[in-house]
């Protein structure tokens, strides 16, 4: 009965997609930090400014990586709080497609914006640091665009 009421009163996915986008940004940041910074170690936060081939250089980058992870942790926490508020609203369409689509969208936004600003404009690091600016930086941007388009398509199909 309650579910029926929610669906009948549902008008928008806006609050849900906002929450999902913020969560996606946080999780995109965690993916970057965990996979590229820590497991593969192909770049670190300031690896174009502070070389990582000495103990001190690696540890300095580790500090900045930690601050980066703190930031994406905060983004994820804010996203969870927004999601909590969204699911309590009666005018929100609780769509799995909209939520997963918006998380993909957020992931893509992170890759596109972080890639543009950090890899290309400020050049504080590059995807594959040993090469400097390389095709991998453009692959990173392209992955952002693909994720944004895929996510948006899912969001749009949520109401249909």
């Amino acid at each position: 009965m309650m579910a029926t009421n929610v669906i009948e009163g549902a008008k928008t996915t806006r609050h849900l997609t906002t929450a999902g986008t913020v969560i996606g940004i946080g999780m995109g940041g965690f993916f970057d930090g965990i996979v590229f910074h820590q497991i593969l170690q192909i770049h670190n936060m300031l690896s174009a400014r502070v070389p990582t081939d000495t103990l001190v250089g690696a540890k300095v980058n580790m500090v900045w990586d930690g601050l980066f992870h703190a930031g994406v942790w905060i983004a994820t926490a804010i996203g969870i709080a927004l999601l909590w508020h969204a699911v309590k609203r009666s005018d929100v369409l609780l769509s799995g497609k909209a939520l997963s689509g918006s998380m993909l969208l957020g992931f893509g936004l992170f890759n596109l914006i972080e890639g543009l600003i950090n890899h290309h404009i400020l050049q504080i690091h590059h995807v594959y640091e040993i090469l400097g600016q390389s095709a991998w930086d453009y692959v990173f941007l392209a992955s952002g665009v693909v994720l944004i388009l895929s996510g948006w398509r899912l969001i749009r199909s949520a109401g249909s």
Binding site: T12, T13, R14, T17, T18, T21, V22, I25, M45, W64, L67, F68, G71, A75, S102, L105, G106, L109, F110, I113, E114, I117, N118, L122, I124, I155
Partner: peptide
């Protein structure tokens, strides 16, 4: 490090408006 934050916030606001 912080430069991406305002851009991401703007992007989220935009997504919210066009959702």
């Amino acid at each position: 490090m912080s430069a991406v934050v305002p851009a991401l916030v703007l992007a989220v606001v935009l997504v919210r408006r066009i959702s």
